[in-house]
């Protein structure tokens, strides 16, 4: 009887430990998010290129101060291949979203970067790319 109880306890302990590892594995998979670095680097490089050439001011402010979505779209279409979706959002630090343009965008596979500009009321330019 004593031997059976010890066996039962040992079995129960084994089950709990295995379960701990199984749940840990499962949770670690949730904790770690698979990231598409190719897209992230592409988005960062597009923003860097825009900042170096001054294009980012046309995108974020335009002549009127409320951005130039048509210019931004043309600039993106010339850089992003057709099989890559994009979402470009320009946010004013005081007024919220100025505009957003999207093409074949899939949030589930998206990666991107942001660029902060401090001219006038300030802008956050967020570029997300997806496959």
């Amino acid at each position: 009887m004593k031997g059976q109880a010890a066996l039962f306890e040992a079995a129960l302990l084994t089950v709990v430990i295995i379960l701990t590892f199984v749940v840990a594995q499962f949770l670690f998979k949730v904790q770690y998010v698979q990231s598409d670095y190719g897209l992230k680097i592409d988005a960062e490089r597009i923003l860097i290129h825009w900042a170096n050439t001054g294009v980012i001011y046309a995108v974020a402010y335009g002549v009127t101060g409320s951005g130039d979505p048509q210019y931004a779209e043309a600039a993106l279409e010339s850089l992003v291949p057709p099989n890559i979706g994009y979402n470009l959002t320009v946010i004013s630090l005081t007024k919220g979203v100025v505009y957003s343009i999207t093409r074949n965008f899939n949030p589930a596979t998206a990666e991107g970067a942001t660029f902060i500009l401090m001219r006038g009321d300030g802008r956050i330019v967020s570029l997300q790319l997806s496959r």
């Binding site: 904790q31 998010v33 680097i41 960062e44 970067a113």
Partner: peptide, 16 residues
């Protein structure tokens, strides 16, 4: 906190 797998994009992050 959530973490991402893979290398960090240090050069691009620094440049930005």
């Amino acid at each position: 906190p959530k973490r991402t797998i893979g290398p960090t994009v240090d050069i691009e992050n620094y440049t930005i």
